[in-house]
């Protein structure tokens, strides 16, 4: 049996005196789309940053397929190259063109020749309707376009896992749709995704599973439709009530 793409085993993380993650267990199978929901400060973003090795965990283990990536002996840069990440603020590189943003990791980390990398990048940009913007600098694009470029940049290296950290939170409402449509497409192609989100409707539509975090622990997890419509836990119900009214 192939191991799951991602497995968290009793993951703990503290910042000073605050425990941000208090023993999180989570398994993400191939082609799964898992949505992390919860209030600000519930630990969603920290969880994603721990998986991407941008934060060091204080206890537990994180497995990416059969690699224990919480082992200090693993080559962190190689692990990060296997994971795509999209940030809330896009974080595109403003001094290089869109196409160079997209091909940077392919060329510099995977050592793919420029011509091949650019062909792939143009194909991906074309699919999100941005091939015409390939030679522009990021600041000439709208927020929604920038975020779509950021997603393309994250998937250009064909990562095994895609992490999306509240990718629509910095966007104007009318731009949210174009970004979410792209994520829906990725799901349909079988991309394995873990996303922190505030878009409950979207989580219900796209996620296979929803995980509700509160105070750094998983309070409840289950199929999206069930958890969002008939949550079992009072805390989940209270949280959702605030959102859905």
């Amino acid at each position: 049996m192939t191991p799951p793409v991602l497995r968290l085993d009793g993951v703990r993380k503290r910042f000073g005196d605050t425990e941000v993650l208090g023993g999180v267990d989570l398994t993400v199978a191939e082609h799964d789309v898992v949505a992390l929901i919860g209030a600000s400060g519930s630990g969603k973003s920290t969880l994603l940053r721990c998986v991407n090795l941008l934060e060091r965990i204080d206890d537990g283990q994180i497995w990416l397929r059969d690699t224990d990536i919480s082992d200090p002996r693993v080559h962190a840069d190689r692990v990060r190259a296997r994971i795509g990440t999209v940030f809330q603020q896009f974080n595109l590189f403003p001094h290089i063109r869109v196409i160079d943003n997209v091909t940077l990791a392919s060329r510099r980390v995977l050592r793919i020749p420029r011509a091949t990398a650019e062909a792939t990048a143009l194909e991906l940009l074309d699919r999100v309707g941005l091939a015409g913007k390939a030679r522009e600098y990021p600041d000439r694009l709208s927020g929604g376009q920038q975020q779509r470029v950021a997603i393309v940049r994250a998937i250009a290296t064909n990562p095994e896992l895609l992490l999306l950290d509240e990718i629509t939170s910095a966007l104007d409402p009318e731009l949210v749709v174009e970004v979410l449509d792209l994520v829906r497409d990725l799901k349909n192609e079988g991309t394995t995704i873990v996303m922190a989100t505030h878009e409950m409707a979207f989580a219900r539509d796209v996620a296979d599973r929803v995980v509700f975090l509160d105070g750094g622990v998983i309070v409840e997890e289950g199929p999206a439709a069930q958890l969002l419509r008939e949550p079992r836990e009072d805390r989940t119900r209270a949280f959702l009530a605030r959102f859905l009214t």
């Binding site: 941008l54 840069d77 190689r78 990060r80 940030f87 974080n91 595109l92 940077l104 990791a105 980390v109």
Partner: peptide
């Protein structure tokens, strides 16, 4: 910016 660069595997 550094975070984004490192997350790409650079």
């Amino acid at each position: 910016q550094r975070l984004a660069a490192r997350s790409l595997g650079l």
